[in-house]
């Protein structure tokens, strides 16, 4: 724990809070996040409801906690999907080159030309707006970025003599890729995965805000933000708290990503 920069500390604290909230939201919330209570419509923050209630009298804190769990799982699975698929394609094309590489990369570049959110929107229209649809759509939308980065890394790695040394030792291509190329891609991948976690969280919120995310009444930060919008003049907390959650989580993840990058940079290693 030496040389822990304040940024790293703040980042870890914010991400830690998110994780704690997500796990708590999955297990227990102060009130039922879906429980209606029309007597307490749009009530401000109070001792009973710390962050107030929404237009149906549902507890905002409970909904935020439950939403954190949903958002966290969606982001995590999306990143895992995109990184796994992107790494596989990136390593294969970068290692073997040839015409397959050319075709895949042309297609990849075409996908990269679309903004991720637009691509996800199109895909969502096909697969349907639900939790798994979002994971699939966002996962596919972010795969090309991973392919680009992994392939670039592989291209520089395969020129290094230790890859040739592996071939001289009689190792198969699959072994060389798995044992020598993949571990050397871990550092950039970790950094990419952390920042991507933030992008996906934001994209998922944006999709939910647009009404294409997880369908109501299930809470996510995005659809809470969206449903708070019409009441912004009467009940400002409805939009502020989910917005604050999104911003702080993004900040935390970016700070942690920077710290990870410094840690994993080979030049910084002892």
């Amino acid at each position: 724990m030496r040389n822990l920069a304040p940024n790293t500390l703040i980042g870890s604290a914010l991400v830690g809070t998110l994780l704690a909230g997500a796990f708590m939201g999955a297990v227990w919330t102060p009130y039922d996040p879906l429980g209606l209570n029309f007597k307490l419509k749009l009530a401000g923050p109070s001792a009973a409801h710390w962050l107030g209630t929404d237009e149906f009298g549902r507890d905002v804190l409970s909904r935020l906690l439950a939403g954190a769990a949903t958002s966290f799982w969606i982001s995590l699975l999306t990143v895992v999907l995109a990184v796994a698929a992107g790494t596989l394609i990136g390593i294969l094309t970068g290692y073997f080159r040839g015409w397959v590489d050319r075709i895949v990369m042309t297609f990849n570049d075409a996908l990269l030309a679309f903004p991720g959110i637009l691509l996800a929107l199109g895909l969502l229209a096909v697969v349907g707006a639900n939790k798994y649809g979002i994971i699939l759509a966002l996962g596919l939308a972010y795969t090309p970025t991973v392919v680009r980065i992994v392939r670039g890394n592989v291209l520089s790695l395969r020129e290094r003599e230790f890859i040739e040394a592996s071939r001289v030792m009689g190792n198969s291509n699959a072994y060389t890729m798995f044992r020598h190329i993949l571990p050397n891609c871990i550092a950039p991948l970790t950094v990419l995965a952390t920042s991507m976690f933030g992008w996906v969280l934001l994209a998922e919120s944006a999709l939910s805000f647009l009404g294409l995310g997880v369908p109501p009444p299930a809470p996510t930060w995005g659809n809470m933000l969206a449903s708070g919008r019409p009441f912004i003049s009467q009940a400002v907390w409805l939009a502020i708290f989910p917005g604050l959650c999104i911003s702080l989580t993004l900040l935390g993840i970016n700070l942690l990503g920077d710290a990870l990058r410094d840690k994993l940079d080979p030049r910084m290693r002892g």
């Binding site: 003599e161 230790f162 020598h180 571990p183 050397n184």
Partner: peptide
Amino acid sequence: DPYSSLDPR
């Protein structure tokens, strides 16, 4: 090149 012929990891 002994710097590139050994897998750094």
